[in-house]
Structure formats: C-alpha cells, structure tokens
C-alpha cells in the first residue's frame, strides 16, 4: 500500500512528509510494475462515501472533468486506456496505460506501457476518513519528468508542474463530488472557455 507503513519507516507519517530517503523507491513498493522516479502524492478528504468517489473515478473517461491537463482518456478494451495529455506550449503527449489492480470502492492502480513518452505509474486509494468525515482519497503517482529538469522547469512555468497539478486536480475532484460543480470565478462563458483552454 502506498499509504501505509513501509519497512524503513518508524512512525506513522506518510512517506511524502519524510525528510530523508528515497521516497520514490518506497512508493514504488506499492505498485505493480512501477515506472518513473519522481513521486507526487497527496491526500484530500471528501465529504462523500467511498463507493461513490471510486465509481466516479473508475470511469476514467470522466477524469478530464476535474483534471485540467488531461485532454481525454479513451477506453481501448481489456483495461487498456489511451491518455491524451496537454503539455506546455500547446503540445499534446499521449500514451497507453494498463489498469494493473483494482478493487471496487478501495483502489485503482495503473502503469504506462513500455516506451511511453512519459514513463508513469500510480494508484488512487479510497479509505474511510475517521470520525465519519467521508473519504480520504490518496493519489500516488510516479513519473519521469519529460526531458528531465528542463522539462520540469518549462512545465512549472506553464503551471503544469505535476505536484501543483495533482493538488489542484484533487481539489477539483473534491469540489465536483461535494458540490456538484467545479468552482470558477469566470462570469461569462467566454471567460470560462479561456480558462479551460
């Protein structure tokens, strides 16, 4: 499990909060066929039942409704999906990924095919939040930054730096699930279209 204790940990804190160690390697222990050497992981509490959140997410074609940089996800059959993702400067990147593990209401994991332009793998876990506060949704993603450091710098410039992106996407998922819509300050449809561009 990407969210539980690992061998090298001696406390209950998540590996993403660790000050030492190879967090990406530790996270990879929770994945089948891990790919990528950079870790992004984030947890958000959503005031809705686990099953409902899982069901929405498992329908991967719907991910663009809250994941800003995903253009579309196409089902190719046999748990294979084509991901088309917006990259800086109007470019698109795409790859095919396989759902490696899933359990209704609990988790879903994937890994990109060998040779994908951006090597990546990850999982999303859905757990009951303590105190009846709904569900903890944890996204754990390993990836190889495109074109290394430079690609990441460029991406950051365009606000598509993965750590920021994952945090914002999870917030949008929370908004959509809790309120039925994604918050926006746009006051005309034209502004909204521009924002989502």
């Amino acid at each position: 499990m990407g969210t539980g204790l690992t061998e090298t940990q001696k406390t209950d804190t998540p590996i993403t909060a660790s000050k030492h160690g190879d967090v990406a390697r530790e996270a990879s222990l929770s994945l089948v066929e891990p790919k990528g050497d950079t870790l992004v992981a984030k947890t958000v509490t959503i005031n809705r039942p686990r099953e409902e959140l899982y069901d929405y997410w498992r329908n991967l074609e719907r991910l663009p409704s809250f994941m800003e940089n995903i253009e579309r996800v196409e089902a190719l059959g046999e748990k294979r999906y084509r991901w088309v993702v917006k990259a800086p400067a109007g470019h698109m990147v795409e790859w095919v990924a396989l759902v490696t593990e899933e359990k209704a209401g609990e988790y879903i994991a994937w890994t990109a095919d060998e040779g994908a332009e951006i090597a990546n793998s990850g999982r999303v876990d859905f757990r009951d939040a303590p105190g009846g506060r709904g569900t903890w949704v944890t996204a754990t993603i390993l990836y190889d930054p495109p074109a290394g450091i430079i690609g990441k710098a460029v991406a950051k410039l365009f606000q598509r730096e993965p750590a920021i992106q994952v945090r914002r996407d999870l917030r949008r998922f929370k908004q959509l699930m809790e309120t039925g819509e994604v918050a926006t300050a746009a006051w005309t449809k034209a502004q909204l279209a521009e924002e989502n561009d």
Binding site: T45, N47, G134, R168, R171, E178, T179, V182, A183, A185
Partner: peptide, 18 residues
Amino acid sequence: CFHCSKHQYSACDNGLPA
C-alpha cells in the same frame, strides 16, 4: 463540505477556485 456542515462558512473548502 465539512466546515459548511458545521456552519463555519468562512472556512469553506470549496469556495475558492482550485
């Protein structure tokens, strides 16, 4: 959200665009 359900409206989780 959790905060709104406690009537802590100014602490709402979802009022701001992400």
